[in-house]
Amino acid sequence: TTTITTTNEEDARRIATEWKNKGYTVHVEKRGTTFRIEVR
C-alpha cells in the first residue's frame, strides 16, 4: 500500500485519477486540510 498526502484538492484528484487509470485501487480520505490517498 502506498500512501500519498497533499493539502491541494486538485493534486489529490489528479493523483487519484492517474493511479486509477493504471489499474490500482485508490481510496481518498480527507483529514482536516489534508488529503490522504491510499493506493493498493
Rank of each mutant, 00 (worst) to 15 (best):
V39M: 05
I15V: 07
T3G: 04
T2E: 07
E18L: 12
D11K: 06
T25W: 13
E10A: 11
G23R: 02
E38P: 00
R14E: 06
A12K: 01
N8W: 05
N8C: 05
T2K: 12
T7N: 13
I37N: 00
R36A: 11
R36W: 15
T25R: 10
V28G: 01
G32D: 07
T2W: 15
T7S: 11
G32W: 03
G32Q: 04
K30A: 06
D11N: 06
Y24Q: 02
R14M: 08
T1K: 09
R31V: 15
T6P: 01
E9V: 09
E29A: 08
A12R: 01
E38Q: 10
T7V: 08
V39K: 02
N8Y: 06
D11G: 04
F35C: 03
V26R: 00
T1C: 09
T1G: 11
V39E: 00
R14K: 10
K22M: 10
F35Q: 01
K30G: 04
N21I: 09
F35N: 01
R31Y: 14
E18P: 00
A16E: 09
D11M: 10
T6M: 06
T25N: 10
R14W: 06
T5M: 12
R40E: 10
A16C: 06
K22Q: 08
T6A: 12
E9H: 07
V28R: 01
E9D: 05
W19H: 04
E10Q: 10
V28Q: 03
V28S: 03
E10V: 09
T3Y: 15
R13H: 13
K30C: 05
A12C: 06
E10K: 09
V28N: 01
E9P: 09
E18K: 08
E38D: 08
T17P: 00
E10T: 08
T6Q: 03
E18S: 08
F35T: 03
R36V: 15
R13F: 14
R13I: 14
K20V: 12
E9R: 08
T2S: 08
R36G: 03
E9I: 11
E18W: 14
R36D: 07
T3F: 14
T5N: 07
E29P: 00
D11E: 14
I37K: 00
N8G: 05
V26Q: 00
I4E: 03
A16S: 07
A16G: 04
K20Y: 10
E38G: 04
T34W: 12
E18I: 11
E38S: 12
E29N: 06
G32R: 03
T1L: 14
Y24V: 02
T34F: 12
K22W: 06
D11V: 10
D11P: 00
E10W: 09
T7A: 10
N21L: 13
I37Y: 00
K30T: 06
N21W: 05
T6E: 04
W19C: 02
R14S: 07
T34P: 01
N8L: 06
K30N: 06
H27D: 06
I37F: 01
T1P: 10
I15K: 03
W19G: 01
N21K: 11
T17R: 11
T34C: 07
V28P: 00
K30H: 08
D11Y: 10
E9G: 07
N8E: 06
E38H: 14
E9F: 11
R40P: 04
N8F: 06
T7I: 08
K20N: 06
G23P: 00
T7L: 10
K22Y: 05
A12Q: 02
A12Y: 03
F35V: 04
V28K: 01
V26Y: 01
V39N: 01
A12G: 02
T2D: 05
I4D: 01
N8M: 05
R31A: 11
T1I: 15
A12F: 03
T5Q: 08
T7Y: 12
I15N: 01
Y24P: 00
V39L: 08
R31P: 02
V28Y: 05
R31C: 05
I15E: 03
H27Y: 12
K30Q: 12
E10M: 10
I37H: 00
R36Q: 12
K30F: 09
E18H: 13
T25Y: 12
I37D: 01
T3V: 15
K20I: 14
K30Y: 08
T5C: 07
K30L: 11
T1Y: 14
R14Q: 08
T3R: 06
A12I: 03
F35Y: 14
K22T: 03
R40W: 15
V26M: 01
G32T: 03
I37M: 02
T25A: 10
V28A: 03
E38M: 12
T2F: 15
T6Y: 04
A12E: 01
H27M: 11
V39R: 03
I37L: 05
R36N: 11
A16Y: 08
E10P: 05
E9L: 10
R31G: 05
R40Y: 14
K22P: 00
T33L: 12
A16R: 03
K30V: 10
R36H: 15
R36S: 11
V28I: 13
T2P: 06
R14I: 07
V39W: 04
K20A: 13
R14T: 07
G23Y: 02
N8Q: 05
I37V: 10
E10C: 07
V39P: 01
T17K: 10
Y24K: 03
I4T: 03
R36E: 13
T1V: 15
T33R: 09
T7K: 09
E29V: 12
R40G: 10
A16L: 05
T3L: 14
T3C: 07
T6L: 07
E9C: 05
E29S: 12
V39Q: 02
T5H: 11
V28H: 02
R31S: 13
